[in-house]
Design a binder for these strands. Structure first.
Lengths: 138, 138
DNA sequence: ACCATTTTAGTACTTTAGTATGAGGCCTAA
DNA sequence: TTAGGCCTCATACTAAAGTACTAAAATGGT
């Protein structure tokens, strides 16, 4: 949110600077208007690219900093979290059961609880949400 | 491929038209240079947005470091890749079909092909592999 | 125009995933 | 001791996901 404001501020400032530069150089007559137009076009093309990417991607602050508090905040238990991690590794319920030495039924229970707590309908959606919440490494 | 060429052609033509319009109106003196600059800025901002959205897979490689060559190397087609991206967003086959305007059957076909090409047994595993191969954003 | 690939879509199945519910054992705080 | 989580497991479902074909268009390059 704050980033967007900053970006737009920078954008407006850039516009003003370009305009002032254009005015001066035109009066001085040492720079063509073509160059001015090309510069503006290029700058805003880049800004458009940049803005679009920043808005479409989740802001990945990263540094491997997982938000442990958020896990507790969501009421996700230790065992459930272990299952979540294994899901992110692409394992099936059966495989997770074998890895954690529990039955497939137990895994299913954990997965069901996870889906509720992460407000997801599928395990893939749970993964996406968990990554956005920064509770599992991406 | 051809789309990119067309888009860039349109871009160049737009630039030329804007330049011509700017020249005329400046000579005629009935339009301010401020308006011209604002127009150009706006147009190229939009073009930047549009380009980044449409050709995201060709343009994201500088920022996100996606390995485009590896996608082709694995023989993953354009449509299959689109499906893969939607899977990573946690959508079901049905939802992907609705989003891409194809039937669920078609999505299943694409997914099956993806699983073979990514050497995965499940969509979650495909996701994990795709991320390791850097063909989808983390 | 021709050939190769891609995209689309279907049927018929098998396999996972996920839901709902109940229940026993374990541990901890009141 | 009792109430409340948590972990475990089971049964019986329903719902997705995935497989294995077949096949018709459309797309694209030579």
């Amino acid at each position: 949110m704050k980033k967007t404001i900053l970006v737009f501020s920078a954008l407006i400032i850039a516009l003003l600077i370009l305009f002032q530069l254009g005015k001066y150089s035109f009066i001085a007559g040492d720079t063509s208007i073509e160059f001015l137009i090309a510069s503006i076009a290029l700058v805003f093309l880049v800004i458009g690219f940049y803005l679009n990417r920043k808005n479409s991607k989740n802001l990945v602050l990263d540094g491997e900093g997982l938000d442990i508090d958020k896990i507790k905040e969501l009421g996700i238990s230790e065992r459930e979290y272990e299952v979540l991690v294994e899901i992110s590794k692409g394992l099936s319920n059966k495989e997770i059961g074998e890895k954690l030495f529990v039955s497939e039924s137990t895994v299913k229970t954990h997965v069901s609880n996870l889906l509720v707590k992460l407000d997801a309908k599928r395990r893939t959606q749970a993964l996406q949400r968990a990554k956005k919440l920064r509770i599992i490494p991406h």
